[in-house]
Design a protein around this nucleic acid. Structure first.
Lengths: 215, 215
DNA sequence: CTCAGTGCAAACGTTTTGCATGTTT
DNA sequence: AAACATGCAAAACGTTTGCACTGAG
């Protein structure tokens, strides 16, 4: 049972390492697809699984909906921005003794630990200082509106690129998403105030929508 | 918008508090259904969500596939047994200063933290010490008892020989048993703690399982 | 009488699989 | 020529939602 070198695998690893973020499988898929348009999401998943088994990358099973993968494998912890959902590594000094990854706690023989912090990243803190306008994205206390899904972002981006009102079909064409799916996304985005319908059956991005995809 | 008192809600809360474990929605559903056979899983989800919003219970978004809910709401951390998957609360003293849940880390304004330990629970440690005999009886929490049937043994043996997670089909091929039958056996073995599912739709033999076929 | 809550089924988004078809060794 | 990997479509999984109805207030 050997692991072979395939171009897909190479690109996946390379892109994960290049982007020094903690990408979801889907985000990585989108990046990789630019270089290799015919790659499938299943391949990305299979390779991420395989690479994490071999220890080349780390599966970052922090809670939340989507799993994230990390090319940094040395011991560190994570901090998640509750507003923009960015995940970053943190290397805490002087905590190794107090927060040990080995030892005994309550009778358990500890073999590992995971420490996550939740807070506001510098960017979002700055953004929240602006007292009006894009404060729509929420109060930063975690009660903010839902994050946009990647597909919602795609739709929104396509709508931004498309100058003037457009129909769902235009977006479907621009994003490569299925028309029916796009219709649903648009409805969601409308509910969130990121999209409106200046003309019947035609849609456009709102100012809120523009700020939403800027981050 | 008031929260009403319904029998479903009452039973859900009651059962969650009674079982002092960290149940998944599905586990709780199974328990509650015994007292209220017509309750639906959606109701369990809706109520868990609602109860956690009101702060009566805590949503435990620790890593893993399934969300868990906790009737204990004061600040504490968790330890997970890597063998039996039990999750318990731990209250660590003298760590609050070093592992702060508020403050600033790398520019992030921290609003919370989550700390999880992974290790072996006392029960499983003890169990691992006993090399033979009635160690087959499981973790002592009443979750395992029956002797293995010959077919169950076959399945377990095949799984032991198969290094790494496997799907039911693999076992069917290895044992020559019918795939559908194998699926059933795996389910039984899982219930007894001899098999687990490290990856969705994939199965592996547990340490318990290994001791079970050694005799 | 009202509207929060329910059961049911169907939808959702993410992840995994089966299978026929490539690619690497 | 194996053994491994891929693309695609379809399934599985845990969770959420839409809807018509029930029952608490």
């Amino acid at each position: 049972m050997s692991v072979r070198r395939t171009s897909q695998r190479e690109i996946i690893l390379q892109e994960l390492q290049k982007s020094r973020q903690h990408l979801t499988a889907d985000q990585l898929f989108r990046v990789v697809r630019k270089k290799m348009p015919r790659i499938s999401l299943a391949t990305v998943y299979r390779n991420l699984e395989l690479l994490s088994e071999t220890g080349l990358i780390a599966k970052l099973e922090v809670s939340g909906r989507q799993r994230r993968f990390d090319s940094e494998v040395v011991g560190h912890d994570h901090v998640t921005c509750v507003q923009c959902h960015r995940v970053e590594n943190v290397f805490l000094e002087g905590m190794k003794e107090d927060c040990p990854s080995h030892g005994v706690v309550d009778g358990y023989t500890i073999k590992g630990r995971r420490l996550e912090f939740f807070g506001l990243c510098p960017r979002c803190q700055k953004k929240n200082k602006v007292p009006k306008g894009d404060a729509t994205m929420g109060c930063g206390c975690g009660c903010a509106k839902k994050m946009l899904t990647d597909e919602q972002k795609m739709v929104l981006q396509a709508m931004a690129d498309f100058h003037g009102p457009c129909v769902a079909k235009d977006i479907a064409a621009a994003t490569g998403l299925e028309a029916k799916l796009v219709t649903g996304k648009i409805a969601d985005l409308k509910k969130q105030g990121f999209v409106d319908s200046p003309v019947r059956c035609k849609y456009g991005i709102t100012a809120d929508g523009r700020t939403a995809i800027k981050g």
